[in-house]
Amino acid sequence: MAVFLELLVNGISVGAVYALIALGFVVIFKATEVVNFTHASLLLAGGYVIARLHPLIGFWAALAAGIAAAALVGALVEFLILRRAHVGSRGVLAIVTIGVDILLTTELTRRIGTEVLALGDPWGDRVLRLGPVTVAETRVVALAVAAALIVAFLLAFKFTGWGVAMRATAEDAETAALMGVRLGRVSLSAWAVAGALAAVAAMFLCVFPTPGLDRGTAAAAMKAFPAAILGGLDSTTGALAGGLIVGVTETLMSGYQSELAFLGRGIGDAAPFLVMIVILLLRPSGLFGTKEPARV
């Protein structure tokens, strides 16, 4: 039972981090109807800046710099590439984002090389004991921070002018423009916000018990794709649910790997994608979505 509870808490914590990534993914889709495959490299960029800067300026300043850098990279991708790619189809735009992702990831992994970069976080490998349950401090912080960011984001989405502009654009871009909404700004801000959230997620994906940032980090970030898609690409609620489902499934599957040996090794890594496929077979637009990715 204690094992199950530990796995569950860890799963929820990892899931909350995935939800941060998925949320950015969903925001970009809502604002621009583009499926953004550049997301993993935005995350890697944020993590890379934190890893390189923390020895020089300390963890917190490096974290701020990483968040700003990932937001900037996101905004630049939007401004320099997607805004100028006058292709008619969203599908082609999605492929453009894959191209950008490959370019960015290749450059970043070349810079990282075979190193494993520590992020210099203040939590280290400390653990918290709550009765029989032992959880890494990083996991608790990740859960609290991700939850706070998600709540702040949802409140902004609901109540600020920015949020109203985002939702209006998501529902009907032409009519939003008729209300004086500058669609370019909406799209730019969506990419910047997504980048910033991805950088925070990068930090939590690379701290204990993960050894640090390495070339495999982008692959970890890829698990947020099934989270966003199974939740429903255009639903913020879906991003949260999807992130939690993916995090918990993955953690439980990995935790009970010996019992699940018949499924083969590495089932934890494959689980998010399996869950996504099953859910999409049952509900093509995801759990909370209204638009099917195929129609994009």
């Binding site: 002018g161 939702r167 209006a168 529902e171 032409e174």
Partner: peptide
Amino acid sequence: RRVFARMTVAENLRAGALGV
């Protein structure tokens, strides 16, 4: 008409003022 169907009446009015 093209009202924002998923938003409330108040939010629609707010959207109308976004440009000013």
